[in-house]
Design a protein around this nucleic acid. Structure first.
Ligand SMILES: [Mn+2]
Ligand SMILES: [Mn+2]
Ligand SMILES: [Zn+2]
Ligand SMILES: [Zn+2]
Lengths: 139, 139
DNA sequence: ATGTAGTTTATAATAATTCTAAACTAGAAA
DNA sequence: TTTCTAGTTTAGAATTATTATAAACTACAT
């Protein structure tokens, strides 16, 4: 397997999560993380982007497996928006979102842009896992 | 069709939304709204409850159709929680929720129990459709 | 170099939901 | 009251997203 220069960091990263640096995972890493800005995607869009060229094909099953593995490893975050499809975010910092019901697209809201000045105590024995707000917008 | 006394209000209600008061819709109305407390449900749980007795059977397709019609008419509210299943709420007032990832159950949080002291302006041409918070909890 | 656990893959299975089209019915109009 | 029709119900098929299966492949420890 050929490992290009900028792949070395992904090899490290994957190994540190007990994930073998396969060529499929490295390709997906490069697509997801070799960029200046974070972004949101679905498995469907990721699959298209990864497989639009005629080079190495990655199966849909592997796209699902990899997204799941990267989410578990903390490289990605899942954003719950619609009932029908999972959205993922390469921005793993805690932050909020606008979800446009027309275009079905997510936009980041910086964590500091929403201030929750009063938050209820969770039921006994339960703790808050996530307190990120999704604001639904439309025309 | 036999219309019991307390069904008359549902007949009115349905007619006012241009929905014919069929026996299926009235049965579902009674199940959903003839009670002191509001509650949360999925199509799956509603279907079981409506069809557990040996009286009139309502098809699953009609359960789906009716839940959709009632949501459009404003009798029910859809709560987005998990990626796999839709949740509905007979409490149509604006309020927030805890969503327990273990038991997969929703609990109401009164609107006043969360204070959003800072909220971002939506993108140009878009308006906020819904600003209800779902707080994910777990053990 | 070899062995093996981890990974990829095509494909099948599942689960929730939506679609289809035929049979049925509420209620307006005759 | 009967007739007519648009609205509704229904069983079953189709669709969509996702997960499971199991055989082939491969990274990498020994
Ligand atoms: Mn679905
Ligand atoms: Mn699904
Ligand atoms: Zn984001
Ligand atoms: Zn509620």
């Amino acid at each position: 397997m050929i490992i290009s220069n900028n792949s070395k960091m992904y090899v490290q990263k994957l190994r540190s999560s007990n994930l073998r640096p396969t060529k499929q995972r490295l390709k997906i890493c490069q697509f997801l993380f070799d960029r200046k800005k974070t972004f949101h995607f679905t498995v469907e869009t990721l699959n298209k982007k990864i497989n639009n060229n005629r080079t190495m094909k990655v199966s849909l099953a592997t796209i699902y497996n990899t997204v799941e593995a990267f989410t578990s490893a903390g490289y990605l975050k899942e954003i719950l928006t619609s009932k029908n499809k999972s959205y993922y975010d390469t921005n793993i910092k805690s932050h909020h979102h606008f979800y446009d019901e027309g275009s079905k697209e997510l936009t980041d809201i910086h964590y500091s842009q929403i201030k929750l000045s009063k938050v209820p105590v969770p039921p006994k024995g339960k703790k808050i896992k996530n307190l990120e707000v999704v604001i639904r917008i439309q025309k």
